[in-house]
């Protein structure tokens, strides 16, 4: 196991900087998820940690040692790729054992490692199959198995669940989380899926345009986003934002106002008693989810999503009024989009 530290890390392609001097410390055994939209630099950062991309500036330290100039194989890390990268011409057993190809272990020791990893991942009955005969989830497990057998100092995951369907993704999220709890190995995990970030991470690192916008526990990021981007990126459905202003001590909708008023759909409840903030509008769409219904309408010229509790399903076209309880409003500066606090 090991710590990972990034010190003023820069990546440039020609004259274009894609990572702009980021700093980050990942503690020993920590599960850190890099999250952000496509092109934000999260995969590039991971690939630099792995040694698959050259570092243009700054330092990467693994276990306290600067590894900028070390080959991937000398960094003692393992990586799981989005498309699994398991070899179609090898069986599951050979694929897992391939992680030990250059290991000085004896054949028996290697076999024991493979068997142990296969047992841990539930792959024992599939050891003699080829990848073509496996499901997406099984292939992903094989890729994890190949990474596990090496007992690396850290695991790097590059969007490992992106190719799986929603149900399998949910299952694999739990499996990877359990695996981390069992092995206690440092994990750096890249995803653009904020649900993965929220459910798996000890700490989330939100990135945009090659900068780290915010780093914190999932609840810190969810409850105290530093700006509009983070607020909208984390949480599903996204946080509502309407222009507003403070009038006589109360926050109200005001087109062109100096504030952006944020509230999460689950905090904006249709038919709730008037709270810190109230909006109303004509329903444009409804999404019944069973225990609640998401209600879409417009306020201040912006689309808003509210929640109707229980079996209440407002009719499309009807006017609804929804309120946010005190303490659930997020205020942002309309000009800078930086957070101003909760209300």
């Amino acid at each position: 196991m090991a710590t990972i530290a990034l010190r003023n890390l820069v990546k440039s392609y020609g004259k274009t900087d894609v990572i702009h001097g980021i700093d980050l410390d990942i503690a020993d055994g920590e599960f850190v998820v890099f999250v952000g939209p496509s092109g934000c630099g999260k995969s590039t950062t991971l690939r630099m940690i792995a040694g698959l991309e050259e570092v243009s500036g700054g330092e990467i330290l693994i276990g306290g040692e600067v590894v900028n100039e070390l080959d991937p194989k000398r960094r003692n890390i393992a990586m799981v790729f989005q498309n699994y990268a398991i070899y179609p011409h090898m069986t599951v057993r050979q694929n897992i054992a391939f992680g030990l190809y250059t290991s000085p272990l004896s054949r028996d020791q290697k076999d024991a490692r493979v068997t142990e990893a296969a047992a841990m991942l539930g792959l024992e009955p599939l050891l003699d199959r080829r990848p073509a005969a496996l499901s997406g989830g099984q292939r992903q497990r094989v890729a994890i198995g190949r990474a596990m057998v090496r007992n690396p100092a850290a695991f790097l995951f590059d969007e490992p669940l992106s190719n799986l369907d929603a149900q399998l993704r949910a299952q694999m999220r739990i499996e990877i989380k359990r695996l981390h709890q069992r092995l206690g190995t440092t994990i750096a995990y890249v995803t653009h899926d904020q649900i993965e970030a929220m459910t798996m991470a000890d700490r989330i690192v939100v990135m945009r345009d090659g900068h780290i916008l915010q780093s914190g526990t999932p609840s810190e990021i969810y409850d105290s986003p530093v700006n509009v981007f983070t607020a909208q990126f984390i949480g599903s459905p996204s946080m509502n934002l309407v222009p507003g202003a403070e009038v006589a001590g109360r926050i109200a909708v005001q087109p062109g106002g100096p504030l952006l008023v944020g509230f999460r759909p689950h905090d904006l409840v249709v038919g709730a008693p008037e709270g810190a903030f109230t909006v109303s509008g004509a329903v444009t769409a409804v999404e019944p989810l069973g225990p609640e219904t998401l209600v879409h309408f417009e306020s201040g010229g912006r689309p808003v999503i509210a929640t109707a509790p229980g079996r209440m399903v407002p009719a499309v076209g009807s006017t609804v009024t929804a309120s946010v309880a005190a303490g659930a409003l997020y205020l942002f500066d309309a000009a800078t989009e930086n957070a101003l606090g909760r209300r």
Partner: peptide, 18 residues
């Protein structure tokens, strides 16, 4: 051939010829 296959092997410690 996807680069991921080659990069996975690189991380596993194989030399370029192998």
């Amino acid at each position: 051939v996807p680069d991921d296959f080659l990069e996975a092997a690189r991380i596993d410690g194989l030399n370029e010829f192998t």
